[in-house]
Computed example of a mutant assay.
Amino acid sequence: MTKLIFALWATLAALALGGCTTSPPTASQDDINELAQAIQSLSPAVDPAEARKAASIAYTYSQQLAREWNITDPAIVHNAKVANGLRERGLCNDWAQAMTTRLRQENFRTLDLHWVTSPPTAFRIIHHSAAISAKGASMNDGIILDPWRNSGALFWAPVREDTRYNWRPRMEVREELLSGAIPY
């Protein structure tokens, strides 16, 4: 029933906001440098070159996917387009999978990647994203990398400071959903 309500709500939102489109995301070298510094500051053991590489990929890959997936609307409107077959990809889990897969291809020695999930609540649907942390550190001590939220324009923040969502390990949330501990 929740999925049906979401689909109806998302469809109505898409129709109401049909004229609202987003601009293609862009990032400056300053944006990339700021994220690289934040990643490097996760631990003295983080390699500065790896921090720069991860930051650059996070921004440029988000922009690439936004173009490939034809993201032209606010995220929730794009979700409705995917749900109604007007777009193939661009749900938050698509972004999370693509971002974690791409960053893992780098085989970072001093960084770990996490697929994180915020469970559904009465007022919010489930949300997935990528997070990056120092090698061996908890996802909670990392940085959220969320391109879905702003339609391909990368949002990032320390996981603990991103109070908009209740980020937890993906598999933990999955198990709770499957067991019925969290209603979906």
Score class of each variant (00 low, 15 high):
Met1Cys: 10
Thr2Asp: 14
Lys3Ser: 14
Lys3Trp: 08
Leu4His: 15
Ile5Trp: 02
Trp9Thr: 11
Ala10Gln: 05
Ala10Ser: 09
Thr11Asp: 08
Thr11Ser: 14
Ala16Ser: 12
Ala16Gln: 14
Leu17Arg: 07
Gly18Gln: 08
Gly18Ser: 09
Gly19Glu: 10
Cys20Ile: 15
Thr22Phe: 03
Thr22Cys: 12
Ser23Ile: 04
Ala27Met: 02
Ser28Tyr: 06
Gln29Ser: 11
Asp30Cys: 05
Asp31Lys: 15
Ile32Ala: 11
Glu34Lys: 15
Ala36Leu: 05
Gln37Phe: 09
Ala38Trp: 11
Ile39Ala: 02
Gln40Arg: 13
Ser41Gln: 13
Leu42Trp: 03
Ser43Asp: 14
Pro44Met: 01
Pro44Cys: 00
Asp47Arg: 01
Glu50His: 01
Ala51His: 02
Arg52Gln: 14
Lys53Pro: 01
Lys53Cys: 06
Ala54Asn: 01
Ala54Val: 05
Ala55Gly: 09
Ser56Gln: 11
Ser56Ala: 07
Ile57Gly: 05
Ile57Trp: 04
Tyr59Gln: 00
Tyr59Ser: 00
Tyr59Ile: 04
Thr60Met: 04
Ser62Phe: 00
Gln63Tyr: 08
Gln64Asp: 13
Ala66Lys: 10
Glu68Asn: 14
Trp69Val: 07
Ile71Cys: 08
Ile71Ser: 05
Asp73Glu: 14
Asp73Met: 07
Asn79Tyr: 11
Asn79Ser: 13
Lys81Tyr: 12
Ala83Asn: 09
Ala83Phe: 08
Arg87Thr: 09
Arg89Tyr: 13
Arg89Phe: 13
Gly90Ile: 11
Leu91Gln: 12
Leu91Ser: 03
Asn93His: 14
Asn93Ile: 14
Trp95Tyr: 15
Ala96Gln: 05
Gln97Glu: 12
Ala98Cys: 14
Met99Tyr: 04
Thr100Leu: 03
Thr101Ala: 12
Thr101Cys: 07
Arg102Lys: 13
Glu106Gln: 03
Glu106Trp: 00
Asn107Thr: 04
Arg109Thr: 12
Arg109Glu: 10
Thr110Asp: 00
Thr110Tyr: 00
Leu111Phe: 00
Leu111Thr: 01
Asp112Ala: 13
Leu113Tyr: 06
His114Ile: 08
His114Pro: 13
His114Tyr: 15
Trp115Asn: 07
Ser118Pro: 03
Ser118Gln: 07
Pro119Gly: 02
Pro119Trp: 11
Thr121Ala: 08
Arg124His: 01
Arg124Cys: 00
Ile125Asp: 10
Ile125Trp: 07
His127Met: 09
Ala131Cys: 05
Ser133Gln: 03
Ser133Arg: 07
Gly136Trp: 15
Ser138His: 01
Met139Ile: 07
Ile143Met: 10
Asp146His: 09
Asp146Leu: 12
Trp148Ile: 13
Trp148Ser: 03
Arg149Tyr: 10
Asn150Leu: 10
Ser151Thr: 10
Gly152Ala: 08
Leu154Trp: 04
Leu154Pro: 01
Phe155Lys: 15
Ala157Arg: 15
Pro158Asn: 13
Pro158Leu: 08
Val159Thr: 05
Val159Arg: 02
Val159Gly: 00
Glu161Ile: 12
Glu161Pro: 14
Asp162Met: 09
Asp162Leu: 08
Tyr165Lys: 05
Tyr165Phe: 14
Tyr165Thr: 05
Trp167Cys: 06
Trp167His: 05
Trp167Met: 04
Arg168Met: 10
Pro169Leu: 01
Pro169Glu: 00
Met171Phe: 09
Val173Leu: 04
Glu175Met: 09
Glu176Leu: 15
Leu177His: 06
Leu178Val: 08
Ala181Val: 02
Ile182Lys: 08
Pro183His: 00
